[in-house]
Design a binder for these strands. Structure first.
Lengths: 249, 249
DNA sequence: ATGATTCTTTGATCTGTATCAAGGCAAAAA
DNA sequence: TTTTTGCCTTGATACAGATCAAAGAATCAT
């Protein structure tokens, strides 16, 4: 969508401690041994099956967590059932914020999810004493804010076709692992209905737009949940975004 | 859009420190004398006329600022001119974030605006050394994130009528000054076109919905820009939000 | 004041997406 | 295997809101 959201705080030294992504990606890249030990002691893992609700809106937050694997969504639901997703959690994304004791949306696993959880009160006191962790959490919050604002433009002004193209392009960007040039098979992770709730559409419209993009040779489905991008340039043209990621002259 | 020019009006507005909202609302509530002195020394005021662009997307950020008076909007514009507002700045709101050297949206004054500006590099180093300011900025960012997510629900799932009712209710909430019971005259601050860009509608639809709400006795206009809420209960019913502000059982 | 300009309202019509409906397909269960 | 169940696709139709159009108020400039 745009590349302006790059953080320019001093880049974080890649200290790889162990398997836990929270260690080297989310909060602890600059932690010393004491801090790591402290984090380690408040850490537990939890797993959720696809479809499980991880947190209900308004429920008191007992832990904060980093996503280790899987995909979860943040969603808001109106009294009559209309639902809007307001965020997507992928590995290394963070749940919970300093000073917030509850959240105003539901968090749901769309595929099996593993979380690395930290006791909230203890985590908060560590954050208070550790400016570089606070700083890292601020970065994460600002990244989410940028993402939310991009999504506002999508929800308010883009056509169904543009929404789908943007969504596909985002998935393509986030799922490409710096590969060879070969076409990546991209995993959709979600049902048509969930995608519709993310894009502010109905499931039928999502299905029709996928079909149209396939007919136009932009993407190709191997099965319902997996596709390849056949024509990246065409896809990017369809998103409605600046080709150039936001550089202004 | 083209007619909009960046105004470089030199700072004037000799506002007394005690009046500056940044002191008691935004960052300094817990500052000691040294910190206040430091903030004071990096502070300048800037004024912008209605319609002026305060900051262009992508432009390097030389200052961070607190809104002293007036209303400004954050907006994103697509190549073909479609525009979506992604935020509203009212007095005491903050522009600029620690670690961000630019922003990915335009900031525009909708009425005359006075900003209290702080030199960005100096402000950032103060933030680094002052955890309670960092903490306050985190709170502000999280509030904005919550607001953005509420807006995503509005943009993605609400009807035109619900959007207008939500907007009016928000204005009513933010503009009430803990008054006597009398009906507050609320200032719209924006044109129909700007409101449309905020709500993901067209200006004609905004106008029609205002007329409908007036005909139904929910609100009443004294002139184009000023109205009163005649029936708060009816208004809240129209927003589509939980009556109860989000408490969950 | 007077005319120009910029908003706003309202009407008529159009259209993109929702809604309603009916099968199709694939994985899971029996 | 057959049946069930949960998604997905596609078609027909409806409708909310966009678009096009024109005229009525404010506000601004002269």
């Amino acid at each position: 969508m745009n590349r302006l959201k790059k953080s320019n705080t001093p880049s974080i030294a890649p200290i790889k401690c162990s398997q836990c992504p929270i260690r080297h990606r989310a909060v602890c890249a600059r932690c010393d041994d004491d801090e790591l030990e402290n984090l380690e002691s408040m850490k537990t893992y939890k797993t959720y099956a696809a479809g499980d609700v991880i947190l209900w809106r308004g429920e008191p937050l007992e832990f904060v967590a980093s996503v280790v694997s899987g995909v979860a969504t943040l969603s808001k639901t109106m009294e009559d059932g209309r639902t809007q997703m307001v965020g997507l959690l992928l590995p290394s994304d963070f749940i919970g914020r300093p000073g917030r004791e509850q959240i105003d949306f539901d968090v749901t696993a769309t595929v099996d999810v593993i979380l690395c959880c930290f006791d909230r009160p203890r985590f908060e006191s560590l954050v208070c004493e550790t400016p570089h962790i606070a700083q890292r959490l601020m970065e994460l919050a600002l990244d989410e804010l940028d993402a939310a604002r991009d999504w506002m433009l999508l929800l308010g002004r883009k056509t169904a076709r543009e929404k789908i193209a943007t969504f596909i392009e985002m998935l393509a960007r986030r799922s490409s692992h710096g590969h060879d040039g070969s076409k990546n098979v991209i995993d959709l992770h979600m049902t048509r209905d969930q995608i519709a709730n993310y894009l502010g559409l109905t499931l039928e419209t999502v299905s029709r737009q996928f079909s149209a993009l396939k007919k136009d040779g932009v993407i190709d489905f191997s099965d319902r949940k997996h596709f390849t991008v056949e024509d990246i340039a065409a896809l990017q043209d369809e998103t409605g975004d600046d080709a150039d990621g936001g550089v202004v002259y």
